[in-house]
Simulated scan of single mutants.
Amino acid sequence: MAGSERLICASDAVLEGGDGVRFPIETAWGDRTGFVVRYRGQVRAYVNRCAHVPVELDWQPGKFFDDSGLYLICATHGALYDPAGGYCLAGPCRGGRLPQLEVVERDGNVFLIEQGE
């Protein structure tokens, strides 16, 4: 069954290498937050849950990128993730991956694609 769309935010709220936007989601682990960031011109979204320890990545709401703006970073233990695919590049979860969420950007907005049953 096709998924439905849920508005996350306006496109201009997600700047290249800038703060991400958090939003509520339901997962196999219960109610969590997801986040959307912009990297190389595209919006990318993930479950806000480190691949090493089940904690949220951001040290302050929306602070997902490291100082360079090139990698997502877990504030708890410094794991670095590739924003393009969510793969852990360095740190204790090396080889792990952030759970990816499907999003679409259209008409000046970013939408989460919620999978149907």
Rank of each mutant, 00 (worst) to 15 (best):
G91H: 08
W59D: 08
V53L: 15
R38Q: 12
D67R: 11
C88E: 01
D82M: 03
Y71W: 15
E114K: 12
V47Q: 03
V110Q: 01
V103P: 01
G95S: 13
G116W: 01
R49S: 08
F64P: 00
H52C: 11
D58L: 13
C93E: 00
Q115V: 13
G91K: 09
G30L: 07
V55A: 04
G34E: 07
E5F: 14
F23A: 02
R106C: 10
E26I: 09
R22T: 06
V43Q: 03
G3Q: 00
L112S: 10
A79G: 06
G41A: 12
D67K: 10
P24Q: 00
G18F: 08
F23Y: 14
A10R: 05
L7S: 08
N109V: 04
G85A: 08
D31M: 12
A45P: 11
G85W: 11
D58G: 12
C74E: 02
L57G: 02
D58Y: 13
A90T: 12
D12F: 10
A13K: 15
S68T: 15
D58C: 13
R6H: 11
F23D: 01
F111R: 09
E117K: 13
A75K: 04
F111E: 01
G30W: 09
L101H: 02
F64C: 07
E117L: 14
E56R: 06
C93H: 04
C88R: 03
L101T: 04
C9D: 00
E56Y: 07
I113G: 01
G91E: 06
Y87I: 09
L80V: 06
F111D: 02
A75H: 08
L57F: 02
G20Q: 01
A10S: 12
A51G: 11
I8Q: 06
D12T: 12
G78P: 05
D66K: 07
W59I: 07
G85H: 13
V21E: 01
C88N: 08
E114Y: 05
T76V: 11
N109P: 00
V103Y: 00
H77L: 04
L89H: 04
A28M: 07
G17Y: 06
D58F: 11
G96W: 03
R97C: 15
L80N: 05
A2S: 14
C93F: 04
Y39I: 00
D67Q: 13
T76M: 13
V47I: 06
C9Y: 05
R49L: 06
W59C: 07
V37Q: 00
R94L: 15
Y71I: 00
V53H: 08
R97A: 11
F111M: 09
G30K: 04
F65K: 05
E5L: 15
G85P: 00
Y46F: 15
C9S: 09
